[in-house]
Design a protein around this nucleic acid. Sequence first.
RNA 1: GGCCCCAUGGUCAAGAGGUUAAGACACGGCCCUUUCACGGCUGUAACAGGGGUUCGAAUCCCCUUGGGGUCACCA
Length: 486
Amino acid sequence: MKRQVRTRFAPSPTGYMHIGNLRTALYEYLVAKSMGGKFILRIEDTDQERLVEGATDVIYNTLKLCGMHHDEGPDIGGPYAPYVQSERKDTYKPFAEELVEKGHAYYCFCTKERLDQLRTECEAKNETFMYDRHCLSLSKAEIEEKLKSGVPYVIRQKMPREGVTSFEDAVYGTITIQNNMLEDQILLKSDGLPTYNFANVIDDHLMDITHVVRGSEYLSSTPKYNLLYQAFGWDIPVYIHLPLIIKPDGSKISKRKGDAGFEDLLKMGYLPEAIINYIALLGWSPDSNQEMFTLEELEKAFDITSISKSPAAFDIDKLKWFNAQYIRNMGPEEFHDLALPYLSEAVTNRNIDLKKVSKILQARTEVLTEIPSKVGFLNELCHYDLSIYVHKKMKTTLEIALSSLKAALSVLEETSEWTEEILHDKLINLAAKLEIKNGQMLWPVRTALSGWAVTPGGAIELADILGKDESVRRIKIGIERLEESL
RNA sequence: GGCCCCAUGGUCAAGAGGUUAAGACACGGCCCUUUCACGGCUGUAACAGGGGUUCGAAUCCCCUUGGGGUCACCA
């Protein structure tokens, strides 16, 4: 009988959701869900020096916003609790000691100073530093003595010096590494907490994780993990290493360089669904040509064998396109709800019906944050250059603009019912009556109404939104100014 | 630098010995049209280089080149 698939997302709480981490979480989620398994959240906070206040909330929030619900985790518990490594502090040491007894690990009392010195010496000689096994030769009595007198120590994994270690990766195939490349890595730190490498193996085993999904930066250290599994006599999980997500210039994404994390993208006006959809396709592709995927659709379509090996560049333009797709495909009410915070701040003119503004904005918005820059003309008519009345394609000149505005003004002033339909009929009919092109009427009106060369929506929509009084007032200003100049 | 991995248009990518080498983003053009968008149509653009294997290589092997990763009491 096959074990139930269990994957885990094991971020360390740094307060920043790296886009690569988010994709790792996504794939972990998809690997589990596509095979009817469980997705577990575990917090890896064994580095006491890097603790960040409120960082776990960022993690919960991100998963929630993206719709990736975990089956077990610190906040909801589960059969393998606790799910925070600092709360499992005491479980690691006995395992490390077990390894010492079995001869796969040993105590090391070397000071940081000695290690640093060794390191600089190596650098000077242009050699790669590797721990010199100084403490491996300590006698049992010496070790007892040091332990008893409380000398700080770490426990190191004893690596084989000869031979090779191979493992199978579901994405990269067989990977083989020379054992003499493996350092006697530290398992248990002097503060009593395990290193990531050790805690990871222990917890993955204890929590019955069947598939280990992580970035390809762990590829070369995986043999160390396997040696650990073997030393304990435990089953080795399925490894699924993921290609890195890089920046367009090929360098890696980093918080320090100010690269956008998940939260930053939200602030920039991107939708979680669009982000998920986009990053799902960075490193994985479906059998079909389908590009738009909901999370549920991804759960069905996802397949480990279609994960690619080469790094993918994060292309903000394509994300923007996905975002625009999601905006266009949603219902008008939903868009209005999303746009409202931006609109209510940007549109100070209280007479404006923001719902109507949303309507003309929906097909013209790619990211939410660009909304304010599109609606400023609604607040007030700014001084504009008359040259924008002249438009070659619309076949307008200052003279035509003036006569169109005059004709439009008299028609609009008599209009009592101010709706889009009526405005449309009146202005179109007027153009026909005057035997001019629609554009020769509507372009000048739109221009006079907005004072902008480019606006979301045309003359009729803007007139409707601005209302009769304001529309008439603005057209009169246009007429006045055109008359002055001619 | 040692070791590991990767290599199809500018970007994401399909392709798993025989294809006119898909599709998407971006870019250009045309159409629609009351500006801008949306939508529709369309164009430019790729197998890094060199050796093999084979009747035949984007597909398999080797080398070169390029890129990335990794070498912490970080995860």
